[in-house]
């Protein structure tokens, strides 16, 4: 029971991660989506992001608890990197909402296309892309293994597979 729940969680996590990556790539391409979809996707990003964080909670909890005593510099750097990524994504979503032209006005919230918030939104974007790349690189081994297991082998994966 515990094993199947953990397997389900792992499978859910990898599907969420792939969806998150796709949504982020679409958000980086407003010329493909158009502004309205860009804004709605940006707001909707909150949900997979929340699930991603909730599913990673045991790691977040453990890494926070042992941050100061962590002997490995890489693990500490990874922890800081994850925090920076979270901060940048929050800033992206918040600044995007502040200068929203479509989504927020559609639900009755009036917005101003403020130059300072707009600059913050555009400049944060480059660092977010950089950190997502490093985040993927850091976790590549487990990410690639899970993608292979759940996307390539799909339903052939047996319940007792490690």
């Amino acid at each position: 029971m515990i094993r199947s729940s953990s397997r389900f969680r792992r499978a859910a996590a990898i599907y969420i991660d792939v969806a998150l990556l796709l949504v982020l790539l679409l958000l980086f391409s407003p010329r493909l989506t158009g502004l309205p979809l860009h804004e709605w996707l940006g707001i909707a990003l909150g949900l997979p992001l929340l699930v991603h964080l909730v599913l990673s909670w045991s790691w977040i909890h453990a890494a926070t608890a042992r941050f100061a005593t962590q002997p490995s510099g890489r693990a500490r750097a990874n922890y800081v990197l994850n925090w920076l990524l979270f901060i940048l994504v929050v800033i992206e979503v918040v600044s995007g909402s502040v200068i929203s032209n479509v989504a927020l006005p559609a639900i009755g919230v009036s917005t101003i296309n403020d130059r300072a918030w707009r600059a913050l939104h555009n400049q944060t974007l480059n660092f977010t892309l950089l950190l997502i790349g490093i985040h993927v690189a850091m976790n590549w081994k487990s990410f690639a293994a899970d993608v292979h297991r759940y996307f390539w082998r799909g339903s052939n994966v047996r319940a007792d597979d490690p």
């Binding site: 790539l25 980086f28 391409s29 407003p30 490093i134 993927v136 690189a137």
Partner: peptide, 21 residues
């Protein structure tokens, strides 16, 4: 334009991840 931008951003992300690793 859209596919060019999407391809470019994907390429950049892959490049950063590849270079980092």
């Amino acid at each position: 334009h859209g596919l060019l931008q999407f391809g470019g951003e994907t390429f950049l992300l892959v490049l950063v991840a590849y270079a980092a690793r």
